[in-house]
Computed example of a mutant assay.
Amino acid sequence: MTSHFRVSNLTKIFGSNTIVDELNLDIEDGEFLVLLGPSGCGKTTTLRCIAGLETPESGSITFKDRTVFDASSRVHVPAYKRNIGMVFQSYALWPNMTVRENIRYPLKVRRMKEAIASGQVEAAAEMVDCGALLDRYPSQLSGGQQQRVAVARGLVAQPDLVLFDEPLSNLDARLRDQVRSQIHQLHQRLGFTAVFVTHDQAEAFALGDRLAIMKAGKIEQYDTPERVYETPASDYVAAFIGMSNRLELVRGHDGWMTRSGAPVDLDTAIVDGRHLRGDAAVARLRPDDLTLHRSVDEIGRGRVAFTGELVTSEYGGRYFDVTVTAGGEPLYLRAEAFHHGSWLRTAAAGAPLAVSFSPSALRVFPSPGGKVDDLPVPELVHTTAGAEA
Rank of each mutant, 00 (worst) to 15 (best):
G242D: 05
M243L: 13
M243G: 01
S244K: 08
N245C: 09
N245Y: 04
R246E: 04
L247R: 07
E248R: 15
V250L: 12
R251K: 15
G252W: 14
H253V: 15
D254F: 14
G255C: 08
W256C: 06
W256P: 00
M257Q: 15
M257F: 04
R259D: 04
G261S: 11
A262K: 05
V264E: 00
L266Q: 04
L266V: 03
T268I: 02
V271E: 11
V271H: 10
D272H: 07
D272I: 06
G273E: 13
R274H: 15
H275R: 15
L276I: 12
L276E: 09
R277I: 15
G278R: 11
G278S: 10
A280D: 05
V282P: 01
V282M: 13
V282T: 09
A283I: 09
L285T: 10
P287I: 07
D288M: 13
D288G: 14
T291E: 15
T291G: 06
L292V: 04
R294D: 01
S295N: 13
V296R: 04
D297E: 14
I299T: 11
G300F: 14
V304Y: 00
F306S: 06
T307W: 03
L310V: 01
V311C: 00
V311Y: 04
S313Q: 07
E314W: 08
E314M: 09
G317T: 09
R318Y: 05
F320R: 02
T323Q: 12
T325S: 12
A326T: 06
P330M: 15
Y332L: 10
Y332H: 15
L333N: 02
E336C: 09
F338Y: 14
H339P: 00
H339L: 08
H340G: 00
G341M: 08
W343D: 01
L344E: 02
R345N: 09
R345F: 06
A347S: 14
A348Y: 04
A349K: 07
P352H: 14
P352V: 04
L353T: 00
V355K: 02
F357Q: 03
S358A: 15
S358Y: 04
P359A: 11
S360E: 05
L362K: 11
L362W: 04
R363G: 01
F365L: 03
F365Y: 14
P366F: 08
S367K: 08
S367E: 07
S367Q: 12
S367L: 05
G369K: 08
G370N: 12
K371G: 06
K371A: 13
V372I: 15
D374A: 13
L375N: 09
P376K: 14
P376M: 12
P376A: 03
V377I: 13
P378Y: 02
P378E: 04
V381R: 07
V381Y: 01
V381M: 00
H382M: 06
T383R: 10
T384H: 13
T384W: 07
T384M: 12
